[in-house]
């Protein structure tokens, strides 16, 4: 087990290098950061050249990349367009997005699994059909449409919650954005749980549990659910990374100053330090979440052993 974890952590190194390089190239391809810095006005060529030299932007791409990587290992993620160090932006942005993600995951687990179990147990009944229809609607409507509609109806018209989240982003203000962020994944979790439950209700070991005279509740929770949740947990785990990155749209809608907000600004200004830094952290979070899921998998299913 320990060996397996170490191997997996080592595997992250090439992924880390590859990912950062790719993003670096992509941001470079976006165009001239100095021009973007000045917005619509054309900069004075001499000033522009000076800035380029100051930030090492006149060096070849590979050299810039090496410089950047060298700095990362000293804890220097570069400077954002507004002059703040990127690390400082991270310190303020990641906790906000993390909170938002946790709120979203919470709804995904509680609502998604509950609906999944209910519909999986009552296949073909009205509740099953209506929940399935709802998941279909949620999956097919773009997030920003759902987001703005919910923001307007719930927060503005009904006055429940805040349409706009303050910079500190306390948990109670994140409930509505959390639901919006969770919606699509929630629909998938519902469907996945339903399928998995439906598949397992006819399993032999469930029949055995019934034949043992166990109460229905125990049969479902201890025997059926425990087995059915294995694929669901895999999905939720991999979704952590997806949610953090995918929060961009939700963060824009509710004006949350998290990772999405900073990334958006970074891309707008062609600021490679911000974009590469944030995305790199997202990649690492994603990889760690995946590792965690794989380890959890072995805990949930004892037939799986890592060596």
């Amino acid at each position: 087990m320990g060996r397996y974890v170490i191997r997996r952590l080592l595997q992250m190194i090439p992924v880390f290098i590859g990912a950062t390089f790719l993003i670096f190239v992509m941001v470079y391809a976006l165009g001239d950061p100095v021009a973007a810095f000045f917005g619509d006005r054309a900069p004075d060529p001499a000033t522009a050249a000076q800035i380029r030299h100051q930030y090492g932007l006149d060096k070849p791409l590979w050299h810039q990349y090496l410089d950047y990587m060298g700095n990362i290992f000293t804890g220097d993620f570069g400077t954002a367009f507004n002059g703040q160090p990127v690390t400082e932006l991270m310190k303020s942005a990641f906790p906000v997005t993390l909170r938002l993600t946790l709120v979203a995951i919470f709804f995904e687990i509680v609502i998604g699994i509950t609906f999944g179990v209910i519909t999986g147990m009552r296949r073909g009944r009205p509740i099953d059909t209506s929940v399935l229809l709802m998941t279909l609607v949620v999956i097919s409507i773009p997030v920003f449409v759902l987001g703005y509609v919910l923001q307007y109806v719930i927060a503005v018209q009904w006055g429940i919650g805040e349409p706009s989240v303050s910079p500190e982003a306390p948990l109670n203000e994140l409930i509505l954005p959390g639901i919006v962020l969770a919606l699509v994944s929630l629909a998938y979790v519902t469907r996945l749980t339903r399928t998995s439950i439906a598949e397992n209700t006819r399993a032999d070991y469930v029949r055995t549990a019934v034949a043992k005279g166990l109460p229905r509740r125990r049969v479902i929770l201890r025997h059926l659910l425990r087995n059915s949740l294995i694929p669901v947990i895999t999905f939720i785990g991999t979704d952590i990374g997806g949610l953090m990155g995918g929060a961009i749209v939700t963060e824009r809608i509710f004006n949350i100053q998290g990772v999405g907000y900073q990334l958006y600004q970074g891309i707008l200004r062609h600021n490679s330090a911000t974009v590469v830094g944030f995305v790199t952290i997202l990649v690492i979070v994603f990889l760690l979440a995946n590792l965690l899921v794989d380890l959890l998998y072995a805990v949930l299913d004892p037939r799986i052993r890592y060596a």
Partner: peptide, 13 residues
């Protein structure tokens, strides 16, 4: 039951 492998719950000791 006939097939003890599938009739026992795989994830419980």
């Amino acid at each position: 039951f006939q097939d003890a492998l599938s009739s026992l719950n795989p994830v419980l000791s």
